[in-house]
């Protein structure tokens, strides 16, 4: 659900980073905050515990250059990964225009990735939305760890819809592929916005994972 303001010539979208607890969602946002031109971003607001675990959400507004005469803004959120923050997660997911699912590549955490993905799917269902209408990219983080599972294992667990999602192998602490992932989900959100206004007819062939309308669209 975009907010289009013709008076100020601004369009605002909401992108949510969801995923496994401690998988690096907040690290993604803090890296973007550190590396984005200060004129293009606001403050990174984090509602966290004393030990820096995300309690409610992290939030950072970012602004892209003008697109078609309109300033395009993205409100970037993370949601807490822990299972017991389900209600919080569901609230923050409301009105989202795009999702990044951050999975932890550590082999011993594959089951947690699966549970987080299932929990996200339940949250979307309860919000009356689905991945058929909501662009999503997958991020396999912590690829530098020696105990990282092979990508094929993560794909087998999380990325088996008819039309696979775009995947980014990242090392968020060092920023590897963090911007590539943000750019990918931003592009998908813009394309989806354009497609919905044009009556569901994409203006050009969609890249892999852009839209899952009519296809099985689920992770896990």
């Amino acid at each position: 659900m975009a907010l289009v303001n013709h008076q100020t010539r601004e369009v605002t979208f909401k992108i949510v980073y969801a995923g496994t607890p401690m998988s690096g969602k907040t690290t993604n946002l803090s890296y973007v905050h550190a590396r984005l031109d200060a004129a293009q971003r606001g403050d990174l607001v984090s509602v966290a515990t004393a030990s820096d675990r995300t309690l409610y959400f992290d939030f950072m507004p970012v602004t892209s250059s003008q697109i078609g005469g309109y300033t395009t803004k993205f409100a970037l959120y993370t949601v807490p990964g822990q299972v017991h923050y389900n209600a919080t997660r569901q609230l923050v997911l409301r009105g989202a225009d795009g999702l990044v699912f951050v999975a932890d590549s550590t082999a011993s955490r594959l089951e947690e990735n699966l549970e987080s993905a299932r929990s996200l799917m339940r949250n979307l269902t309860e919000n009356s939305t689905s991945l058929q209408h909501l662009p999503l990219v997958l991020q396999y983080n912590k690829r530098d760890l020696p105990e990282a599972a092979p990508r094929a294992h993560l794909d087998f667990l999380l990325n088996r819809p008819e039309k696979p999602f775009q995947v980014f192998e990242t090392i968020a602490e060092r920023g590897v592929n963090v911007f590539a992932c943000l750019n990918a989900v931003s592009q998908l959100v813009l394309r989806q916005f354009h497609e919905t206004l044009a009556g569901g007819n994409p203006t050009s062939p969609a890249p892999s994972g852009t839209t899952h309308a009519g296809a099985t669209a689920t992770i896990a």
């Binding site: 659900m1 975009a2 907010l3 289009v4 303001n5 013709h6 008076q7 100020t8 409301r94 009105g95 919000n127 009356s128 939305t129 209408h133 916005f193 919905t196 206004l197």
Partner: peptide, 9 residues
């Protein structure tokens, strides 16, 4: 949830 919010003058 699906429609966009539009602000015009």
């Amino acid at each position: 949830m699906t429609a966009h919010l539009t602000l015009t003058p």
